[in-house]
């Protein structure tokens, strides 16, 4: 089972590298970050904070582009070019196909984030050394790593959902639209919950249950956003909250991939 998964993941990884999915995005991110240095001229005081936000936002944007324009397409190509038939003709189950493909794309994503993370840290160090200490007083490496881990967690959730949507609907474009809608619901839902929080506590209405139920399906990504800590002087993070967040992530990925495997097992492959 593990051998099948790793072989499939390797194929997806090599295919991604052949299509220049990484190098193109890295060049784009590098260009954005170089351009972003000019943007820093307009931030007179909070240079450290703005720089860290910018580096991680570029990382997020690049990862999002990878998910929408490579991961979604990679799933659609398998069916359009009938690669999926070749793969499933081997002794590989449909569940292994889902898991292997997810693994391959996740490794690509991880590689992308590692490269961008290293590049970003270099740029942050360069900015910190070139401005007065008062404008960039802290740069916490553990929090910087935590921020990238958080970012990768969000991307993995989106990737798992892409696997599910790719099984549910045919074609890359509908999956892309569904993924974008999913993302906006995930970012909008916490705001709706916060807006209604005080009113719902009083009434205890069914709407509260509905909003919580929706958050089970559409998780709150902001719980994995640790950007604010990178340049903050605060020491340590709430570890029990982090542990719960990562446990929820692991369970969410399992459930969604399980769902995707069920969908693929029942799917009529044309």
């Amino acid at each position: 089972m593990l051998r099948n998964l790793s072989s499939l993941a390797r194929l997806v990884l090599l295919d991604g590298l052949r299509r220049h999915a990484l190098i193109g995005l890295i060049l784009l991110a590098f260009g954005l970050e170089a351009g972003g240095l000019l943007f820093m001229d307009f931030i007179p005081r909070n240079i450290g904070r703005a720089s860290a936000d910018f580096i991680l936002s570029v990382g997020w944007l690049t990862g999002f582009l990878f998910l929408l324009f490579h991961a979604v397409q990679a799933m659609a190509w398998d069916e359009e070019r009938r690669t999926i038939h070749t793969l499933l003709a081997r002794p590989i189950s449909r569940t292994q196909y889902v898991l292997g493909t997810f693994l391959g794309l996740a490794v690509l994503l991880l590689l992308l984030n590692i490269i961008l993370g290293l590049l970003g840290y270099g740029i942050l160090t360069m900015i910190r050394d070139s401005v007065k200490q008062v404008y960039f007083p802290h740069l916490s490496l553990p929090h910087y790593l935590l921020s990238w881990i958080g970012l990768t967690c969000i991307e993995l959730m989106i990737l798992a959902v892409i696997m599910l949507f790719s099984g549910l609907v045919r074609g890359g474009f509908p999956v892309l639209l569904l993924t974008v809608s999913y993302y906006f619901i995930c970012t909008g839902l916490p705001v709706v919950r916060a807006a209604y929080a005080s009113r719902l506590e009083e009434s205890g209405s069914a709407l509260n249950g509905l909003l919580v139920g929706l958050t089970i399906l559409f998780p709150d990504f902001s719980r994995f956003d640790f950007k604010a800590l990178v340049t903050s002087s605060a020491t340590g993070t709430v570890s029990h909250l982090l542990a719960t967040d990562f446990l929820v992530l692991a369970l969410y990925l399992t459930v969604v991939l399980w769902g995707a495997a069920i969908v693929y097992q029942r799917r009529d492959l044309q």
Binding site: F39, F42, I43, D53, L56, S57, Y183, F221, S222, K227
Partner: peptide, 21 residues
């Protein structure tokens, strides 16, 4: 906040830069 998600900090900074300009 509802529409920008992970990019909300960057967006706040961009709006600030816009007002500075």
């Amino acid at each position: 906040r509802a529409t920008t998600g992970y990019l909300k900090q960057l967006l706040a900074e961009v709006f600030f830069a816009q007002s500075s300009v």
